[in-house]
């Protein structure tokens, strides 16, 4: 059993359970039963996915100030 292979399967499964074939699902299930490290990573990775989802949805917005806007405009019009 191979942790490298399991790691990729874990990410695929967390992205969408349907990403795994029947064989892959079984492989991962058996591996997780035997491997405490991958089981722990699986749970932590799931938490990180949730944090990413939430973190990106509350990203702050940024504005340009009027000088920066003018600079963009000048640069664009100068090129013509």
């Amino acid at each position: 059993m191979n942790c490298k292979k399991a790691a990729v399967l874990i990410e695929k499964k967390l992205d969408h359970p349907k990403n795994l074939s029947l064989y892959e699902r079984l492989y991962l299930k058996i591996h997780l039963l035997m491997c405490a490290l991958c089981t722990s990573f699986f749970q932590k990775s799931a938490i990180i996915s949730r944090a990413l989802k939430k973190g990106y949805s509350q990203k702050e917005t940024h504005d340009l100030d009027s000088q920066e806007k003018q600079a963009i405009l000048d640069a664009v019009l100068r090129k013509t």
């Binding site: 695929k12 992205d15 990573f41």
Partner: peptide, 12 residues
């Protein structure tokens, strides 16, 4: 998948 996995490992 490798990129995703490595990134998550780093975050962890």
């Amino acid at each position: 998948w490798v990129i995703v996995h490595r990134a998550k490992l780093k975050l962890k």
